[in-house]
C-alpha cells in the first residue's frame, strides 16, 4: 500500500463523505469550538454529560478529509464511555498520529482509530487529525472558550 493510500484509508474516506453524528445538539451540556487558523478548519464539538458518562457527542463545521473523518470517528466511539476512557483514547490517538504508538500491536485498544496511523508519515497533517480531539479535551475540562491548534 502506498503512503498516500495509508493516509486516505477507506475508513477515513467513508467518514469524510458520510460523517457520523454530524449535527448540532440543542440540549448539549457543553460545546466548544476548535479552529486551525493555518488551514481554516473549524468545528464545534457538542457533549451531553451525565455525571462522568458521555451520553451523547456530536459535531458541526467544515474542514479537510482528515479533520472531518477524525471528528466523525471520534464521536462514533465515545458514546456511553466515561470521561476517563475518552481521555485514554485521546492519549492513544495523540501518540498514534505522532508515530509513537504502533497501530498493528495495539489494534484491540485502538479499534477504528488505527485508520489514522498513516497520518504520522505526514507531519503537516497531524494538526488536522488532532483538532477534534483537542476540542473534545477542552470540552471535557469545561474550558469553554474556543480552542486553536496554533
Amino acid at each position: 500500500m502506498s503512503v498516500l493510500k495509508e493516509l486516505y484509508q477507506e475508513v477515513i474516506l467513508d467518514h469524510n463523505k458520510n460523517p457520523r453524528n454530524f449535527r448540532k445538539m440543542d440540549d448539549a451540556t457543553r460545546h466548544v469550538e476548535g479552529y486551525n487558523p493555518l488551514c481554516g478548519d473549524h468545528y464545534t464539538i457538542f457533549l451531553k454529560l451525565d455525571g462522568d458518562i458521555i451520553r451523547d457527542v456530536s459535531f458541526e463545521g467544515s474542514g479537510c478529509a482528515i479533520s472531518k473523518s477524525s471528528a466523525s470517528v471520534m464521536t462514533s466511539m465515545l458514546k456511553g464511555k466515561t470521561k476517563a476512557e475518552a481521555e485514554s483514547y485521546f492519549e492513544d490517538f495523540h501518540k498514534l498520529v505522532k508515530g509513537e504508538l504502533n497501530a498493528e500491536q495495539n489494534m484491540d485498544r485502538l479499534g477504528r482509530l488505527a485508520a489514522f496511523a498513516g497520518v504520522s508519515e505526514f507531519p503537516a497533517r497531524v494538526k488536522c487529525a488532532s483538532l477534534a480531539w483537542h476540542t473534545l479535551h477542552a470540552a471535557l475540562h469545561d474550558e469553554g472558550a474556543a480552542i486553536s491548534t496554533e
Binding site: 478548519d41 479537510c64 497533517r125
Partner: peptide
C-alpha cells in the same frame, strides 16, 4: 467536495 488541504497533500506526493 474536496478540501484544499487534501489537494495539497496528494499533489505533494
Amino acid at each position: 467536495g474536496i478540501h484544499p488541504h487534501d489537494i495539497g497533500t496528494i499533489l505533494d506526493y
